[in-house]
Amino acid sequence: MKPSVAVHKFSSCDGCQLAFLNLGEDLLALTELVDIRHFLEAGLAEEDAKVDIAFIEGSVSTSEDAARLRHIRDNSRHLITIGACATAGGIQALRNLHDTTGWTAALYASPQYIDSLDQVTPIRDVIPVDLELWGCPVNGRQVIAAVQQLLFGVAPPRQQDSVCLDCKRAGNTCVLVSGNAPCLGPVTHAGCGALCPAFGRACYGCYGPLENSNTEALAQQFARLGLDAAAITRRFGLITSGAEPFAGTVAKWRGLPT
């Protein structure tokens, strides 16, 4: 019997699911290897299916999300979160930095119809997660590799490199050193292939912070490059503002005078 897979979506742009849908021919090949039981965008609906691997895209935004997640966790042997929203709260975690009580009323005339939690949270705050694949969007190759590794009974390796290493492998000119650009590469997970430096621009951290990386030293360097406190806050607080150590750096620099 083929292993079974489900893909669930929460609050997100849907871009990480495209990691599957953009596979093209490989998507059809994947369906030969596994039995995709639930994947709404692909036309397969079985929310309550018990599966070997469940992929979760999106962050937790409503009170119903939490209940739905616990249900999915009970039904899945392995649970993998994909993308910045599921692993870090995503760009919508920027909401956590603001007093949003007025926001719903500002945008929606009848705010009580909007069931919204005060804080946007990643999936692991609600249920235990077996593997996190970071990225905005996640790298489709990494997702498929994770499926294959699990099918072989191997634990997928954790990504420990920074974007800098991918830049070196690609032979990119360092934009931080030679361009004085406020690049987050030294503190960001590799996985995108160092796209932004290859395009001559500073990395903006969409693959999320490396654990224990020295964001404070990098923030000091940005200050020396001429960024003020507000600009530094914005730099670390964009796609994955909710994840440490970016979140700590954001909190610290927000409090500083500009």
Binding site: S11, T62, L94, L97, W103, L107, R234
Partner: peptide
Amino acid sequence: YEPPRYFEKFLEGR
């Protein structure tokens, strides 16, 4: 029922 992500609000100040 999609939870609003409030893009129009957190664009302010960027």
